[in-house]
C-alpha cells in the first residue's frame, strides 16, 4: 500500500508541475487549453531528440525542454491566441481552437517521430528500500520529486517576489483594473506563456524519466491534469499542486484494488465527486494572491 502512495507521489509531482502551468494560463488568459497535454508531449520529444540524436544526458535536457516549451507557447500565442483576442473571440471559440492546436501538434510529432512507444537513453537505476519502510524508490524517483519541488518553488517565488508575478496576480484578480493601473498586459501574457509552456515542456521530460512514452502521452495526461486543476480550484496554481498530488496518489492507490487500466477513470471519478461537493474546487478559484 505504501508503495502505491510513493509511486503516486512521484506521478503526482509531475501532474503538479504540468497542472500549475495550465492553471496559470487559465487564470491570466481565461483559456481552457486542451493543447496543454500535447505541449507536455512536445517537451518530452524535444528531450528525446537531444538525448538520442545528440547524446545529451537527460538531466541536461530538462532546462532545454523548458525553453523549447516556452518558445512553442509564445509562438502559438502569436499565431493563434493573439489574433483571437484581437477579434474578441469568446472562451468557447478559444476552447475549440485549442482542440485544433492539440490535434495539429500531436500529429506533427507523430509525423516526425512515429507513433511507437519509446524511452530515454538513461541508465536503469535499482529501486532501493526507503529506510525500514516497505517502499522501494530509485534515485530517479527522488530526483523527479526534487525537480518538481524546485519548479514549483520557482513558480511560487515568481508569483510572490517579482514585479511580473505581482502583475500576473493583478491581472487575474481584475483585468480591467490592472490595465487601467498601467500593467503591461502584453508583457504579462508573454511571461504567462513562458512559464506555462516551460513547465509543460519540463513536465514532459520528468514523465519520460519515469516510464516509456509515445505521442499519445499528453492526451492521456490531459484528463488527470484537468482533474488536478479542477479539484484544486481552476485558475489557482497552488490548488493545482494540491490537486496534482491528490489525483496522482488516488490513481496509483487504486491499482491496489482495481485493474491498472482503470487508473485514468479513477482521477476522473475523484474529479466528479469533488465537483459535486465543492463546485469551485478545494481551494476555490481565481485566488492567485
Amino acid at each position: 500500500m505504501l508503495q502505491f502512495v510513493a509511486t503516486g507521489v512521484v506521478f503526482g509531482s509531475i501532474l503538479a508541475v504540468t497542472a500549475s502551468g495550465l492553471s496559470l494560463v487559465y487564470a491570466i488568459l481565461k483559456l481552457t487549453n486542451f493543447a496543454h497535454g500535447d505541449m507536455v508531449t512536445f517537451g518530452a520529444y524535444v528531450a528525446l531528440f537531444l538525448n538520442l540524436a545528440l547524446g545529451l544526458d537527460v538531466w541536461w535536457t530538462l532546462p532545454l525542454a523548458f525553453i523549447a516549451g516556452a518558445l512553442l507557447a509564445v509562438a502559438l500565442d502569436g499565431l493563434v491566441w493573439a489574433p483571437m483576442r484581437r477579434r474578441g473571440a469568446g472562451t468557447v471559440a478559444m476552447m475549440i481552437a485549442s482542440i485544433g492546436v492539440a490535434l495539429a501538434l500531436r500529429n506533427a510529432l507523430v509525423f516526425l517521430f512515429g507513433a511507437d512507444t519509446t524511452r530515454f537513453d538513461m541508465p536503469v537505476q535499482p529501486k532501493v528500500p526507503l529506510g525500514s519502510l516497505p517502499v522501494m524508490m530509485s534515485a530517479d524517483d527522488w530526483e523527479v520529486i526534487v525537480a518538481a519541488a524546485v519548479a514549483i518553488l520557482g513558480l511560487h517565488l515568481l508569483l510572490t517576489r517579482t514585479a511580473i508575478g505581482r502583475a500576473m496576480r493583478a491581472l487575474s484578480d481584475n483585468a480591467a483594473l490592472a490595465w487601467v493601473s498601467g500593467v503591461d498586459v502584453d508583457r504579462v501574457i508573454r511571461w504567462t506563456w513562458i512559464v506555462g509552456g516551460g513547465l509543460a515542456g519540463a513536465g514532459g521530460v520528468l514523465y519520460g524519466m519515469t516510464q516509456p512514452f509515445n505521442t499519445n502521452m499528453g492526451w492521456f495526461l490531459l484528463l488527470p491534469i484537468f482533474a488536478a486543476i479542477i479539484v484544486g480550484g481552476i485558475g489557482n496554481p497552488y490548488g493545482a499542486i494540491l490537486g496534482g498530488l491528490l489525483i496522482g496518489v488516488a490513481q496509483e492507490v487504486s491499482v491496489a484494488v482495481l485493474p491498472t487500466q482503470y487508473r485514468l477513470a479513477v482521477g476522473f471519478v475523484v474529479m466528479i465527486l469533488v465537483l459535486l461537493v465543492y463546485p469551485r474546487g478545494l481551494l476555490g478559484q481565481r485566488s492567485l494572491s
Binding site: 477579434r87 485544433g100 490535434l103 495539429a104 507523430v110
Partner: peptide
C-alpha cells in the same frame, strides 16, 4: 501511410484553428 495519416490530422487541426479565428 501512417505518417500521411498523421499529416492529414494536422491539416484537420489547422483547419479548425483557422475557422475559429476567421469564421467561427
Amino acid at each position: 501511410a501512417d505518417r500521411l495519416a498523421a499529416l492529414r490530422i494536422v491539416a484537420i487541426g489547422v483547419l479548425l484553428v483557422v475557422l475559429m479565428i476567421y469564421r467561427p
